[in-house]
Write a protein that binds this DNA or RNA. Structure first.
Length: 438
DNA sequence: TCTGGGGTCCTAGGACCC
DNA sequence: TCTGGGGTCCTAGGACCC
């Protein structure tokens, strides 16, 4: 526990962040329902208030709401992560003008240390922050303030759901905390998910205040140390530090559902080779390497009457590497080792998803070399650097190893039928402004 | 027809060791 | 018939998050 009296943190996040990013570049989207879809245009993963009001839920499959969207004039967008990532960077640049101590928690949420801001002007500063972010980036936000991260998260939730608060809620004060914690359902607490909620409800816990007032020790039995920590945090005792420097990532995965089912080995191998290519790019960007690749592929639970198969296998590399050729080779081997051909009495499995996963990532600069079977770093380094440079300049996929496969059939690739231009990161996709009149 | 992707942390239980 | 008591490390699976 790192409880230090007088600490104050704020959680600021973008409202319906992905939708708001789309709105920045199309004023006509203001005040109309907008949703952004997940990869493959599968599910709704961001919804404006207008879309929520229509009953569109988080994670709802698109095919279930297609008719509703058409009838109600909901504007639909495929995910444009390049745009959202860039807009995220811009909002954080504004945050840093208000507090140098910022933890970027997710693409649309950051914690700010406000310990040095005097209590009387804290809310005023938060309003100024919101207004500045709105003016400089176009993104609407809400701010929650509290003595711990958990209370700041809760305050943010309250700021969003109570319009009278005008986007800012401060739970630093014990009286304010008492007032609100009785009025918010325990399921809204950061870290209380479905399973914990069921346990708490069985114990008669309904409000956040009920949870706060439980004896933390016995809670540990059912809700682990995580539950115990939450209670302390709700009481104002900080257990979660502000992580100003992002921790080095421990694992990396590239997984995708296919836009159409796959039944043949060549196409599956091509898919995992493409994923391995992407994996290599991600690892090289952070100077990390892996000594193994886990390959998985499986059928879909939604294909109810079809035969099911789920495969996962791990292939070792001779040493830590981020070399795309080595990763592709391993990924293809993973398929080769586990592929099963259909037979007369067994129809082909219809695979819906595949991925490559690695754990135990290590900075390449300090990873040991293999004595036997070592990869040729002298050639790999410059080759990968050249490939990355080409792809940075001409777009991802401009240069790929032939080993990734160049099969003409590409109907498994992810769908992005409704993606907007990458306005802020590609010169060729800049927004065009038409001057009105004659 | 069509149902996302990518992380982290925690615990239990097995293997292994002395 | 009797068949300890710890440690550590690893992995799988659950839970949760955005």
């Amino acid at each position: 526990m790192s409880g230090n009296a007088g600490r104050v943190v704020a959680l600021i996040d973008g409202n319906s962040f992905y939708c708001s990013c789309e709105r920045v570049f199309d004023p006509k989207l203001a005040r109309v329902p907008v949703i952004v879809l997940s990869n493959n245009d599968g599910c709704a993963i961001a919804r404006t208030a207008e879309a929520k009001a229509l009953g569109i839920r988080m994670g709802e499959p698109y095919f279930k709401i297609r008719d509703l969207c058409r009838r109600q004039g909901v504007r639909l967008f495929s995910s444009n992560y390049t745009l959202y990532g860039d807009m995220s960077g811009r909002t954080n640049a504004v945050y840093r003008q208000f507090s140098p101590r910022v933890e970027v928690y997710s693409i649309d949420e950051s914690f700010l240390d406000l310990s040095d801001v005097a209590a009387p002007v804290r809310v005023e500063l938060a309003r100024d922050l919101r207004a500045t972010v709105r003016a400089w980036t176009g993104i609407p936000t809400c701010v929650g303030i509290g003595p711990t991260k958990t209370l700041a998260k809760l305050a943010n939730h309250i700021a969003k759901s109570v319009p009278a608060l005008d986007g800012v809620c401060d739970l630093t004060d014990a009286a304010a905390s008492d007032h609100w914690l009785c009025r918010v359902a325990v399921g809204e607490v950061w870290g209380i998910g479905r399973a914990s909620l069921a346990k708490l409800e069985a114990m008669g816990v309904e409000s956040v205040a009920d949870l706060r007032d439980l004896d933390p020790r016995p809670v540990r039995k059912g809700l682990t140390v995580v539950g115990e920590r939450i209670i302390h945090e709700l009481r104002g005792l900080a257990c979660l530090p502000l992580d100003l420097v992002p921790a080095r990532r421990k694992g990396c995965a590239v997984t995708r559902s296919f836009s159409a089912r796959i039944t043949d080995r060549a196409t599956l191998e091509e898919a995992v080779a493409a994923h391995a290519t992407r994996l290599g790019e991600k690892l090289r960007r952070e100077g990390l390497g892996t000594d193994h690749v886990t390959v998985f592929y499986h059928t879909s639970e939604h294909d109810r009457d079809a035969p099911q198969r789920s495969v996962a296998t791990t292939v070792s590399l001779p040493e830590h590497s981020s070399d795309t050729l080595a990763l592709i080779q391993a990924a293809r081997l993973g398929v080769a080792k586990t592929w099963r051909d259909p037979s007369p009495d067994r129809p082909a499995w219809r695979y819906s998803k595949a991925g490559v996963v690695t754990n135990d990532l290590w900075p390449l600069i300090e990873s040991p070399r293999a004595l036997i079977g070592a990869l040729d770093r002298a050639r790999s380094g410059p080759l990968m650097a050249a490939m990355d440079a080409c792809n940075a300049r001409w777009g991802r996929g401009a240069v790929v190893p032939a080993r990734a496969g160049l099969v003409a059939r590409r109907d498994w690739t992810t769908k992005f039928d409704m993606r907007t231009p990458r306005y802020t990161t590609q010169v060729g996709e800049l927004a065009v402004v038409h001057a009105g009149g004659v």
